[in-house]
Every structure is written in structure tokens, then in C-alpha cells.
Design a protein around this nucleic acid. Structure first.
Length: 111
DNA sequence: TTAGTGACTGTAG
DNA sequence: GCTACAGCCACTA
């Protein structure tokens, strides 16, 4: 099944919302889960839209493949993303998640 | 409608 | 091992 148009966005929102507290995932993982691993950029773009649409999506739990908080710049506060993750039990240091693999959560697992 | 851009990733040098 | 480039697809102006 191929996701096209807004379904892609919708699917991204659904998956991100399912991410349990204290866990994180990557753009690539989500994209791959949707069947388009090359569209990792779209995932980030979708998350940007969530903020814009005031959607209840924990975008701070989505980071890049290296576990780096590349999207923190898009949050209201520069340190907001890190603060949120830390408050959930995720170790963050210098905008990067410590023991990233340990906190990694596969969105496809929940499916 | 066309063109530009974007919170990434993988391959090549 | 690190840096640079190209590809990907949908949205915004």
C-alpha cells in the first residue's frame, strides 16, 4: 500500500503520537515504515506542519539517524526539545541523545 | 502552474 | 575517518 498526499502526513502524525514517553525514533525509521525511506525529509517537513497546525504530536521524540536534535531550531525554545526529552528520561547531551540505540523505538513495531 | 525549499540519508571521493 | 554531493516527495509562495 502506498501512502500519497496527506495520507503520508497523517501516517507520520499517527506514528509519532504512538511513540511512548522516554523513547525516540528517527525520520528514516518513520519514512521506512511508510514505505518511502527516501522521503525522510518529508517526515521532518510533516512534523514542521504539526507545529503549524497546532497538532498534538511529540515532535521532540523524532531525531535524525545519528540521534542528534537537528529539529530543535524549529521549536519555540532552543532548549525546549532537549528539556522535554530529558524530562521524559532520555539522556541528552550537546543536542545529541546519549545511548541513542537504547532509547530508539521502532514505529513499525507498534503496528 | 512553476519553481524553490526542507527537522534526512546513503554513496562516493 | 571525514567531507561533499545527489536523490527523494510534498508543501508553500
Amino acid at each position: 500500500m502506498k501512502y500519497s498526499g496527506k495520507d503520508f502526513y497523517n501516517k507520520v502524525f499517527e506514528l509519532v503520537k504512538k511513540i511512548p514517553a522516554g523513547k525516540v525514533t528517527t525520520y528514516g525509521a518513520i519514512a521506512e515504515c511508510l514505505g518511502s525511506k527516501s522521503s525522510a525529509r518529508m517526515v521532518g517537513w510533516a512534523l514542521n506542519s504539526t507545529k503549524r497546525k497546532d497538532a498534538n504530536v511529540p515532535a521532540h521524540r523524532v531525531v535524525n539517524r545519528n540521534g542528534m536534535l537537528t529539529g530543535k531550531n524549529h521549536f519555540d525554545g532552543i532548549n525546549m526539545m532537549e528539556e522535554l526529552l530529558v524530562s521524559e528520561g532520555v539522556k541528552v547531551e550537546k543536542n545529541k541523545i546519549v545511548n541513542f540505540s537504547d532509547f530508539l523505538w521502532n514505529p513499525c513495531s507498534n503496528k
